[in-house]
């Protein structure tokens, strides 16, 4: 008899503990956020403004709140969106502008700057080139929202684009400044990536940096000189030739100088061998000045390149054609 009463007691104790945890969870869950992409320009002329409209909704479920809405966008670095973005909001809780979050204000969940925290949490989404950044804004005023209410808001974004020809999928994220990107409960933040936006002009000779589609050969950063480290990646998963089945992939390149000379480095060797970094994906990170043995003062305008096997006979070019991949040297 005493033994069974003890069991009953411990059983009841467990139920109390579970109830306590459930209530604690409810108390912590103070807001639920959702983000919807309402519209986004499909085509933009380089240099014009790209427009996006997103709808936000957030609910306060446990107590009144008076805090700022934080909105991040993930766009190509070349746009310098921190300087070139206008963002405004209309909402049930008030209207105004969204301004860049001042330096020194961090995501309370990670203790890191919001831009860094969003890159860590959401990355570059479905994009294929990492030359992107999160730029994070917040409402110019705190917005008061009473407990048990849901607020709807609309964010209008206009970003003056650069002269670069590119296509990418913009990212959007939201949270509240008091919670940040907290994982203590679901619903504190949300992110979405849009469809592919093309920012392309009329110059057929201009290279288009395609963030949207996976490609056999990708280079970064987009802006570089011969005195940068450039990364060239080969994605064997997209190659239709037999090169992808080789264990070693080599870089075969011809560099063109501003004086009109060309320098070829195409001998399979330890210097030209790519490093495996993922399944059937290789990369080479090179310093063009050293790689092409440039004298001081010599600058490069372009590299044309292929990927080859150790014999140099199996060769992959742009889109599996006989044309080479190209990398243009210029600063953005």
């Amino acid at each position: 008899m005493p033994a069974s009463s003890k069991n009953k007691k411990s059983y009841r104790g467990k139920i109390y503990l579970l109830l306590f945890i459930a209530f604690a969870g409810l108390i912590i869950t103070a807001c639920v956020s959702t983000i919807t992409i309402v519209s986004q320009d499909g085509f933009v002329i380089p240099g014009d403004s790209a427009h996006m409209v997103i709808a936000l909704q957030w609910s306060e479920t446990n107590f009144d709140r008076n805090d700022r809405q934080v909105v991040g966008i993930c766009v190509p670095k070349a746009w310098n969106a921190a300087r070139n973005t206008n963002m405004s909001y209309t909402s049930d809780a008030g209207n105004g502008k969204l301004v860049l979050i001042p330096d020194g204000i961090n995501d309370p969940a990670s203790g890191r700057p919001y831009a860094e925290a969003m890159m860590k949490k959401f990355g570059i989404g479905p994009n294929h080139i990492s030359d992107m950044e999160w730029v994070v804004f917040w409402t110019d005023n705190k917005l008061f929202v009473a407990n048990q209410t849901t607020v709807k808001g609309t964010i209008r974004i206009a970003i003056k684009t650069s002269s670069d020809y590119l296509s990418f999928k913009p990212g959007y994220a939201m949270c509240e400044d008091e919670d940040g990107l907290s994982d203590a409960n679901s619903g504190y933040y949300q992110s979405q990536f849009g469809t592919c936006m093309e920012v392309i002009g009329n110059d057929a000779n201009e290279d288009v940096q395609d963030f949207c589609n996976a490609q056999i050969g990708v280079s970064e950063p987009a802006g570089a000189t011969e005195n940068d480290i450039i990364t060239i990646k080969y994605n064997g998963n997209l190659d239709t030739s037999t090169l992808k089945n080789r264990s070693d992939i080599y870089f075969c390149a011809k560099a063109f100088t501003s004086a009109g000379d060309s320098i070829e480095v195409c001998q399979p060797s330890a210097v030209t061998r790519l490093k495996l970094f993922d399944v059937k994906q290789w990369r080479i990170d090179l310093w063009p000045k050293k790689f092409f043995s440039l004298q001081n003062g010599v600058s490069l305008t372009q590299i044309k390149y292929y990927f080859t096997d150790e014999t140099g006979t199996v060769k992959t070019g742009y889109g599996n054609t006989a044309d080479p991949f190209k990398f243009n040297f210029k600063c953005k």
Partner: peptide
């Protein structure tokens, strides 16, 4: 930034 100013090492 030894090359483009936009690249920081």
């Amino acid at each position: 930034s030894p090359g483009c100013r936009s690249n920081t090492y």
